[in-house]
């Protein structure tokens, strides 16, 4: 086989443990996992609270949240860029073109997904549990941790969906990160750059890793779904 074949080169890059490649993978995971962590911390209780409480404008909030699930990454990136740029409200922190900025942008993308899916799951479960929990003396606030734990399988799927979104997007991290080698270059931005430069081997290697990652996430979500149907109902 031709040793200049990009596919062969890609595999050898992965198998040889190329430090450049693995640095990019590591940063990607750090950024996306941090974003998902922060978004879960906010989105799970937020979604549960919207599910359990009635307040004016609730319908609007739910519609907005559902709409924001499809927020274009470049728009999220632009908003964060405007906030973090020198002239922006958060300009003084000098966060633009740092991994922190990328985490903020991806959190913005992932938060609506986790909050909206949580809201739906918790509302369904509350419908089923309400009388029983009230009978046992649980108010709505006390019910939140109960419901979050009992919806754990569905919610894990929601978090995985958020992670899939974060790790696959390119627009937001490109705008606020700037794709600086060794600082803010992640898998998706590297693929975009290397492809345009013609270094197909590195692009392909990263593409393979990314594809594997996304496949693994989806397989996990599928298995959890199966598990919740069969064992735990």
């Amino acid at each position: 086989m031709n040793s200049h074949d990009p596919f062969t080169l890609a595999l050898s890059l992965i198998l040889s443990g190329d430090p450049g490649l693995f640095g990019i993978i590591q940063l990607s995971l750090q950024v996306s996992l941090s974003a998902v962590f922060v978004a879960s911390l906010i989105g799970l209780p937020l979604g549960a609270a919207i599910a359990l409480f009635r307040f004016p404008g609730r319908g609007l909030v739910i519609t907005l949240l559902n709409a924001l699930m499809g927020l274009p990454p470049v728009v999220a990136g632009l908003l964060v860029y405007l906030s973090l740029s020198r002239a922006g409200p958060l300009g003084q922190f000098g966060l633009l073109f740092t991994p922190t900025a990328m985490v903020i942008a991806q959190t913005l993308l992932v938060l609506p997904i986790i909050a909206a899916l949580t809201r739906q799951a918790i509302e369904d479960l509350w419908e089923e549990y309400r009388e029983q929990l009230q009978s046992m003396g649980s108010g709505r606030v006390r019910a939140i941790p109960t419901l979050l734990w009992d919806a754990r399988i569905t919610l894990t799927t929601a978090v995985l969906a958020g992670f899939g979104r974060a790790s696959a997007e390119v627009g937001a991290v490109l705008i606020v990160g700037g794709n600086i080698e060794g600082v803010t270059r992640v898998m998706t931005t590297a693929i975009a750059l290397e492809t345009s430069k013609g270094d197909l081997a590195l692009a392909l290697a990263l593409g393979l890793v990314l594809l594997t990652l996304v496949a693994a996430v989806n397989a996990t979500a599928y298995l959890l779904g199966q598990m919740s149907r069969s064992r735990m109902q």
């Binding site: 089923e128 549990y129 003396g137 649980s138």
Partner: peptide, 27 residues
């Protein structure tokens, strides 16, 4: 102190014993 048993019991998606300890915790 009151309790209610429904026609179709609503059990938490937890172990058998956790269903009881949760009720105790709420009380």
């Amino acid at each position: 102190r009151q309790a209610m048993v429904f026609q179709r019991p609503v059990l938490l998606r937890r172990s058998t014993i956790a269903n009881v300890t949760h009720a105790l915790a709420l009380n």
